[in-house]
Amino acid sequence: MVAAQAGDQRAYDRLLRAILPFLRAVVRRRIAHAAEAEDAVQDALLTLHQLRASYEPGRPLRPWLAAIAERRAVDRLRRHGRRQGRETPIDEFGETLAAPMANEGEARVAAAELRAAVADLPPAQRTALALAKLQDLPLAEASARSGMSVGALKVATHRAVKALRKRLGAEE
């Protein structure tokens, strides 16, 4: 820290990396939420950077760091508490319309899109998908009903699923 006060950037970088686990431990004693705790750790890093002239060479560094980290953790908790007091979670109001069907619009649109996508598949793939996946028949029976070989059925189903994924944006 003394080297950092003198402006040694590499020593400062090493020091901050070395104390990071300690800062995290101090903050995590107060804040359980991981992202919130990491924000408090970063607040503590900024504060100790700002106050680095107030560290007295020769005194132990840990109490100085711990007091700063503790302070920023308490700040975060207080701000969090204030926010929670003002905000109302909106999940409970997800259903905004009184008619039961009215709130299922998204699901209906998705279903319609899926039907359209299936309808656009080549006939062989569509048949394979219907028998092997939708009706969940064993491959031998699906083969008997469709007149396609088991191997061809497998390939067609695979291609159908891949095509659907790609079209509905699920690929990757």
Binding site: G7, Q9, D13, L16, L46, A53, E56
Partner: peptide, 22 residues
């Protein structure tokens, strides 16, 4: 921003300071 990234920035931004008197 990750904390390690912040450390890099703070170190790069370091200017010498005179320690305060006791």
């Amino acid at each position: 921003m990750r904390s390690e990234e912040l450390i890099g920035r703070l170190a790069a931004d370091l200017r010498p300071v005179r320690p305060m008197p006791p």
